[in-house]
């Protein structure tokens, strides 16, 4: 069974003052079909983990390993990682002027699969997936993310997750900025992808709200660049009650 294995991962971000360490030894194993939630206060390094796994050039891995199905993920370029089956639903999807959603989806699908999707079935598939996510068909002709509302951007990310069928998907605060209706629609999309494929999901979130719609098998609490506590979905319920104060407080004491 394919697994995404993260071992003792240390990551720095490039700043004007020089490299600044963010991740300080992350260990995490995700198997196909599993859903792992990563929760934690702002600035704990959750999104850095997402970006570093996808290969964002701003982040440098200083030590540790990441393997996807035994292959060294860190040795791959950004596009190679995607073709190996890694997908990142971004917190802030980028506008690409002049490139229509339809053209973008077809180009990406072709790159990921190594062959162009069959014309007849692909059109239907895209249309169906857009309907499921309550996206207007006119969307397909708009430039990627240009003039999209926050909710439209997130639906477009999940649309891609459903169409590209990755082996592992990282959802970087996909829930942030969504109203309840949009959150439900987006969550349904993630759950469909989980049902239809054996995708392993790494769900990064600040809030527990989305976990009412997407049930995690494991919850990891991220504090100061590493995992401070792990458990099942009951851990999310406790965080809902208690918040992150306990962890932040402990950290403050430790560094005082």
């Amino acid at each position: 069974m394919p697994t995404l294995e993260i071992r003792d991962l240390h990551v720095s971000v490039e700043t004007k003052e020089g490299p600044k360490p963010i991740l300080r030894g992350v260990d995490l194993t995700i198997a196909s079909g599993e859903t792992h939630a990563i929760m934690g206060p702002n600035g704990s390094g959750k999104s850095t983990l997402a970006s570093a796994l996808a290969g964002h050039p701003k982040y440098t891995v200083t030590s540790g390993t990441v393997t996807l199905d035994g292959e060294d993920l860190l040795a791959m370029t950004v596009d190679e990682r995607a073709r190996a089956g890694l997908f990142l639903a971004m917190q802030y999807p980028v506008e690409v002027t002049g490139v229509s959603v339809a053209n973008f989806l077809r180009t990406a699908k072709t790159a990921i699969d190594g062959t162009a999707p069959a014309l007849r079935t692909w059109g239907k598939e895209v249309k169906g997936a857009m309907e499921n996510l309550r996206m207007d068909p006119a969307f397909a002709e708009r430039s990627v993310n240009e003039g999209f509302s926050g909710g439209e951007k997130k639906r477009h990310e999940i649309l891609q997750m459903e169409l590209f069928k990755p082996r592992f998907a990282i959802l970087d605060e996909t829930d942030s900025g969504l109203d309840v209706d949009a959150l439900r629609i987006v969550s349904e999309g993630v759950n469909r992808a989980k049902e239809n494929t054996e995708v392993g999901v790494l769900l990064i979130t600040h809030y527990t709200r989305i976990l009412r719609y997407i049930k995690p098998d494991f919850v990891h609490v991220f504090v100061d660049g590493k995992i401070a506590e792990e458990g099942g979905s009951e851990l999310a319920d406790r965080l809902e009650e208690e918040g992150y104060d306990k962890y932040v407080g402990a950290n403050a004491t430790a560094t005082a």
Binding site: A54, G55, H56, P57, T77, V78, D79, R81, A82, R83, F87, L88, M90, P93, V94, V96, T97, G98, V99, S100, N103, F104, T107, A108, A111, I112, S143, Q160, F164
Partner: peptide, 20 residues
């Protein structure tokens, strides 16, 4: 980064953007 994260190689990404 966005286009590459969707499996599209850099050269193809530039082509896509300029053609579009």
């Amino acid at each position: 980064f966005y286009l590459q994260a969707r499996g599209i190689p850099e050269i193809e990404a530039r082509r896509l953007v300029v053609r579009g």
